[in-house]
Design a binder for these strands. Structure first.
Lengths: 352, 352
DNA sequence: AAGCATGATGGAATCGTTTCCATGGAGAAG
DNA sequence: CTTCTCCATGGAAACGATTCCATCATGCTT
């Protein structure tokens, strides 16, 4: 447990000033002879610059924060792997936090990152603008992934708002100042629309949407895809936990035995739907068809293998990390990645 | 993007010295009146002490490192959630790295953590003593989870060594100095033994073990459980990737069509086994019985639902975090957590 | 040959905190 | 009344890097 060599030690041993050592190590100008000598001494002392000193001087920690609702959700795990891969390539450490889908915990974690002077953050947001505006105002470079904070004005108004506007029932909302942060999203609108059309094509008319926290956007896309009139009883939300997802799925099946197809807004919801259906002796796809968000490895293991809306989770993470790392003065543009409907065996024609 | 208040600002505004502010904030002695005033000013200025200054002064980053092979492996995700939960309770940030099961990347990540002065680390090790001895010597408090580094002398010599010793074929190995770090492990020996006995009880005689990197301990337990003579062809190893796992599983089934049962050393291996069996038209459990390590949520979704050896992944992570946080001068004791065989539907009687 | 530009170099300031130490005042004990 | 003790308090020194700036030597231009 001998203590590490500091820049001062290197400077002394090489007979130069600390400034010179610093310059050599960070690629500044130096004569070839000194450069060589310093490098040799540094190697010999096994000198590694301490991030502590550097960080303090530069008033930023370096490294990037990553906030996801739940790592055991395979999609977020994939996304995280993408972030980690990009960060490793850049040599940056990643501080990960799991919010559990709870705005309060999320806010707490943001506070912690702020305290650590982590000034670059990738987040799958749970809370709304009230959580995120402060972070942005504190100078953090934030990139959202998978979805935007609830109150942030989406680029495209959601279907529900559209309907209201069309009906002349509501004035345009006072446009809650959009959070000034780029995002990496999947094309939910297209993904859901494709899934709904596919189910429609199989003859399904009573299609339900089973969502979790943060799936409002997908729910909106779903409403839009099924078109008015939307049977709101067929749009149900669970909270973050697996138990809640199961309860929501089971409740849905029981309260509306007339439904013939379900779109699950996330893989945890899909899992719950399969379980609930089995418990209620509903056979997939004979009695109920299922399309699940996220192409997770185990989707293929189910029986029948699940038809899914695939999102490129790993890529999304990687792209988000690229954005946040580049993230200079001019804020980066958001990017939307395509989804793909992967047809396996969990959807069948409607049986009367 | 106004800059944050520093301790100096608070001191000035409160009309006291910085030392006093620091003391008040960290619970040192101060008169009630000053304490109150400082607290008020701090709150009013929204002062949050910067971890940067503190870390530099204390020559350690605080926070803990976490290294796992792959976050998309649900077991490691569970373990990580446990670590994160404990760390959040303690208000400590967690720097996560994914090694991909590659000793080189692992070593690189350890180096990065060292550079960040992260001095407490929880690791699911991939590399051997050569990776870990340096980290320990550098003064890191390391807690291993799920397994020990390869070359570290296990508390209990593995079965293979035992056999050699019994046969008088080898001198006791020169006891590679055991790494001086506690670990949180599952009781692999009992877990595997229970699984093998269960399969034996169903009539299976040719049982294979399908392992991945780091499953040597489980393989050892397997050899011990099946007893000599061990058919070494029935013990196969994949490298870290899903592809490799699939290849190993498929190769195993094809090269030894006589096997009737498989123990998979991890959930990724189990997934691969199910896939490979399906591809080869082997039916589970009719043609081949399967026991998989890790009770992951999707084990129940498979058809048939998978019989598993459950490890308390979340608990393991939580305990590891407790150990590393407590981890003071006296090194903590290792802990071994129980496993449980959860019988579902993937094992059946041997059919001839 | 003198002046000027260029580039290498080291000293010192800086970042924000904790902590050591000296100071001063107040209360207690003699 | 004096001396001793104790505590609140603030100044200043770390911590380990980066970086500004002044200095000095060298080589080139005029």
């Amino acid at each position: 447990m001998e203590k590490r060599a500091t820049i001062k030690d290197v400077a002394e041993a090489a007979g130069v000033g600390v400034a010179t050592v610093s310059r050599v190590l960070s690629g500044g100008s130096a004569s070839p002879s000194t450069r060589e000598r310093v490098l040799a001494v540094a190697a010999q002392l096994d000198y590694r610059p301490s991030a502590l000193g550097r960080n303090l001087r530069q008033r930023r920690t370096g490294g990037i924060g990553l906030l996801v609702p739940d790592l055991t959700d395979t999609f977020y795990a994939q996304l995280s792997e993408g972030v980690l891969a990009c960060a490793r390539a850049a040599g940056e450490p990643v501080v990960v936090g799991s919010t559990g889908g709870d705005p309060e915990q999320e806010a707490e974690l943001v506070g912690m990152l702020l305290e650590q002077s982590v000034d670059r953050l990738i987040a799958v947001p749970t809370g709304g603008a009230d959580t995120w505006a402060p972070a942005l105002k504190a100078g953090m470079t934030v990139v959202f992934a998978d979805r935007l904070p609830a109150e942030a004005a989406p680029d495209e108004p959601d279907a529900f708002t559209d309907l209201l506007l069309l009906d002349g029932l509501a004035a345009p909302p006072p446009a809650p100042r959009p959070l000034d942060a780029p995002a990496v999203l999947a094309d939910d609108r297209a993904g859901v629309r494709t899934a709904v059309r596919y189910l429609r094509g199989l003859g399904h008319r009573r299609i339900a949407f089973l969502g979790g926290p943060g799936h409002e956007r997908r729910a909106g896309a779903f409403r839009e895809a099924v078109g008015a009139p939307v049977d709101e009883e067929l749009v149900v939300f669970a909270t973050g936990s697996r138990d809640s997802a199961y309860a929501a799925a089971s409740g849905l099946f029981q309260s509306r035995p007339d439904l013939t197809a379900v779109v699950a807004g996330g893989n945890v919801l899909g899992e719950a739907a399969v379980l609930a259906a089995r418990e209620l002796d509903l056979r997939v796809p004979r009695d109920v068809s299922l399309v699940m968000y996220d192409d997770v490895p185990w989707a293929e293991l189910c029986s029948p293998p699940l038809t899914v809306i695939a999102q490129p989770g790993r890529d999304m993470g990687y792209r988000a990390a690229e954005l946040v790392l580049r993230g200079g003065p001019r804020r980066a543009r958001s990017v939307t990645l395509p989804t793909e409907l992967i047809v396996r065996g969990s959807c069948g024609p409607r049986r009367t």
